[in-house]
């Protein structure tokens, strides 16, 4: 069903909805940027249309609502153990198609990767519904179309935020009564972005000697450039690596907890092993690992690329390393390899 809402009625709807859902969306945290006198665009709880920041892309993705940065898995008290509860109230995430597709990639990692579903991910994931933000232009660094992540059907409600009014398509019956109450019935189907601002050409790895790609001097450039700050990993909607922490609260170590925290292939220590061995000391090797994982390895296992082309890694890199430029360089190299 399609509906039209004024901004005021949207606010009322949001308020009514908040009784059952926690609405979260991209918002502008004033003066919260890492640089002084800069804002931070991030996902947070929204209470009105005015809270939504739609003109700028968020620095972080909304993945932390399903995969928290730091999550306690269980606590020990002597021989007793408990798994912490999570909030019962489901979350309605206002997200663009690329990010919704990002969750779809996370689903593969946590739910479809081996015989066991990830308990912690699954219990949060079932509590998430998407309110898709129609995105027709994207931003400078976006390449979701190339990554086939510009479209999605996985949403309860799709929204077009116009100048004066908001159009909505409601697919999830649960929300129909709300929109009936606050909106006016019209015809609306969301549209999707059809061309990218960042022109990216994906490499065709078919018949390519991957060992040669592995050893290509291209990666050395990134050893020179990348500073291993980890922002590309933490801002990425599909980066799903984590590390474990076991910690005790008391000297006797009877009170303790195990948690998992985000980790990232660019961050120092990611490949550290017992005995001090580390696989990818050079940052160029890390760039290679990430690139191949995002546009080759994952697809080999799950049938679609991991990267959704949101372009956040480009936006946040302090060294101006562009992931899409790296993909294009790789494409050129592979073309050359095939011509030889």
């Amino acid at each position: 069903m399609g509906y039209k809402l004024s901004k005021t009625s949207f606010d009322r709807l949001l308020q009514a909805m908040s009784k059952r859902y926690v609405p979260v969306g991209p918002m502008c945290a004033k003066n919260a940027g890492a640089f002084s006198d800069t804002d931070s665009i991030r996902y947070g709880k929204i209470t009105s249309y005015a809270d939504l920041e739609l003109a700028q892309k968020s620095y972080f993705s909304p993945k932390e609502f399903v995969f928290p940065i730091r999550e306690t898995l269980f606590r020990f008290n002597g021989s007793n153990r408990e798994v912490p509860e999570v909030a019962a109230r489901p979350i309605a995430i206002f997200a663009r198609p690329c990010d919704i597709n990002g969750f779809n990639r996370l689903d593969s990692v946590f739910l479809e990767n081996g015989p066991e579903k990830d308990f912690y991910y699954a219990r949060r994931r079932k509590n998430i519904k998407f309110f898709m933000i129609e995105c027709l232009t994207g931003f400078e660094s976006c390449f979701c179309v190339t990554m086939k992540a510009n479209k999605t059907a996985d949403y309860s409600v799709a929204l077009r935020f116009g100048e004066d009014e908001i159009l909505a398509e409601v697919k999830d019956e649960e929300f129909i009564s709300l929109f009936e109450e606050y909106g006016e019935i019209i015809d609306y189907k969301p549209e999707f972005k059809e061309s990218d601002n960042a022109k990216v050409e994906l490499p065709n790895f078919e018949g390519v000697d991957l060992e040669a790609v592995f050893n290509h001097p291209l990666w050395k450039e990134y050893t020179q450039r990348c500073i291993a700050c980890g922002r590309c990993n933490t801002s990425c909607v599909t980066c799903s690596c984590f590390s474990m922490q076991d910690t005790a609260y008391d000297a006797a170590k009877t009170l303790s907890e195990r948690r998992r925290v985000w980790a990232g292939c660019h961050i120092d220590g990611f490949t550290d092993m017992a005995g001090g061995h580390s696989f990818r000391k050079n940052n160029g090797d890390r760039m290679r690992f990430k690139t191949m994982h995002k546009i080759y390895d994952f697809a080999a296992r799950f049938g679609r690329n991991m990267c959704v082309g949101c372009g956040r890694c480009d936006d946040v890199c302090p060294e101006y390393i562009s992931f899409s430029a790296c993909i294009n360089k790789l494409s050129e190299i592979i073309k050359e390899m095939k011509n030889v």
């Binding site: 620095y59 940065i69 990993n233 933490t234």
Partner: peptide, 16 residues
């Protein structure tokens, strides 16, 4: 503020 600048998750942030 160096710690704020280096933090990849904004766990370290500026005082109001």
């Amino acid at each position: 503020g160096e710690c704020v600048l280096k933090c990849p998750t904004q766990a370290m942030f500026r005082s109001e």
